[in-house]
Design a protein around this nucleic acid. Sequence first.
DNA 1: AAACAGGCCTAAA
DNA 2: TTTAGGCCTGTT
Length: 281
Amino acid sequence: MQYIVHENEIELRGISDFDPVKIFESGQCFRWNPAPDGSYIGVAMGIAASVRSEDGAVFISGGEEDFKNVWYDYFDLGRDYSEIRARVSIDPYTTEAAEYGKGIRILAQDRWEALCSFIISQCNNIPRIKKIIEALCRLCGDRIEFRGEDHYTFPSAEKLASMEPEDLAPIRSGYRAPYIISAARSVASGETDLEALSGLDCAMAIKELRRLEGVGEKVANCAVLYGLRIPTAFPVDVWIKRAVEEHYPPDFDPSVFGDAAGLAQQYIYYYIRSSNAASGH
DNA sequence: AAACAGGCCTAAA
DNA sequence: TTTAGGCCTGTT
């Protein structure tokens, strides 16, 4: 993959499997929103940015330093997704889902942000998850300016560790507030070392994360896949559960996808959600 | 109005 | 080990 440095953005030329819409609308992240001009604007890793695709090229705002230090990893640009798509396509259903979802990538998000975001996600729909997270960032994240607008970074675990659940009342997260604070304290104190967990195998990482209040099987799988970048995680929410029940035998085991299980899940999720777009939005 | 939303926790079999 | 009910809140 080659890139060209422009004055205020990086151009990715000849890149395959990078569709901003599919990446940002496949339910893995909550802080990227479509702008009137068709680009997506969001805040990740403490940086506000704009991403758009045009004539087969992708443009990411910012300079070469941010691109090399942050966005290259965040967008998982070192991975060959066409190769993974081929490996995922082991049966007619995932083959169809993978073709439909071509362009999806799994973002390597900030570990704490992913964990916290999916704690918030439980028993909520995506619009409300985004609303709560935005309010959280506005409440106690750092303000940054981008193209004349105010944006807010995701608050650190340390910052949230110093707060009480009641302090989160303005974000209207309900019963999740104590979970957020409790997880933040565990991470900030080092009791839960997310970076260290990244090096564990999937099952062990999930087991460790499940010790946190408000982190069950589903949330742990999401935190492991999107935050700890462990590709074998296979989060099962109600939609995936439906798809699996419908298209696979009762003894289905996602390990048949090998280390592409997470991406297989992502294709299936995007596929089933798109065909049911009427609900949930 | 009552049920549900990308679950989790606790209590009870 | 599995199952039922409750939970903050917003929306339909």
